[in-house]
Write a protein that binds this DNA or RNA. Sequence first.
DNA 1: TTGATAATGAAAATCATTTTCATTTAGAAA
DNA 2: TTTCTAAATGAAAATGATTTTCATTATCAA
Lengths: 150, 150
Amino acid sequence: MRGRGAWWQERFYNSGARITGPREIVMDILHETDDHMSAADVYVKAHEINPSIGLTTVYRTLDMLTQMGIVQKFDFGDGKARYELINNPGGKKHHHHLICLKCKAVIDYTEFLDDEVEFITKTQNRLSEKYNFDITDHVISFYGLCENCR
Amino acid sequence: MRGRGAWWQERFYNSGARITGPREIVMDILHETDDHMSAADVYVKAHEINPSIGLTTVYRTLDMLTQMGIVQKFDFGDGKARYELINNPGGKKHHHHLICLKCKAVIDYTEFLDDEVEFITKTQNRLSEKYNFDITDHVISFYGLCENCR
DNA sequence: TTGATAATGAAAATCATTTTCATTTAGAAA
DNA sequence: TTTCTAAATGAAAATGATTTTCATTATCAA
């Protein structure tokens, strides 16, 4: 299943990043899950595939992917960062999060994105022009109390 | 300047939270700044006012305020959480963030909120109904590379 | 095939945040 | 006002995620 899509390899190349075993494995793992994975989660899976991979490398790879805009890093308030592929062809759809402030439960929602696209596109264009930012991504999260905690 | 607004004291009361010296000081500090303060930042200021206040209490207070929806907790990716008052009468306006993935610079923007209000209100209503969530807050952030890093 | 350099892994270091626990305090009740 | 009890506090220790260091290895352009 390795090398399923050259799409990211091309992006690595364009960034001057080498394509290595550990990086391929991390990309595979991210492709294969629908979860919000922490670095430790990725490490555990990577370790099953190749026990010589170090946690440090997982961190470094996830960080690099985040900076390249391939991965999105989230903080749900439970003390560890979570990572998700931004473009996962055939994978999880674009979505946002509904986060409970008390129990930290996270609900992914994909509804109501039509209105969002319109709003985000417009705002993003305005912002990138005004602040000369190369915007690659956005986050929309709603916070509150879930039905169990309210 | 203490006790400037009873608004939060009432909310403390309604939550069964006691109004204590340390908590008043933390609220004052949050009222008086426009920055995105970390717990350590708040601690330093609190310590100037009353050196007996402990960092632990600052953390606990900020956490409580976050759960009460008085404060919003942010993660800009630099490893420490930031806190801002959500309703600061006479203070900083509602705003969102533009965050550089490389240098972690944060730009606050307040423009283009008219479109946002419409979009957010609608989405929030739909979500709270569908998922039975008591939504108190939202975050919209844009990520990318700032003009120096792009 | 080779060499420069990027990437890696293990271990140690860092550092934000949380926990523990003995002490103090707010504020309801008497 | 005084008393009483649960909530709040602070210091210190513990935790745990993430980063740094540095010697070794591997990628890939030439």
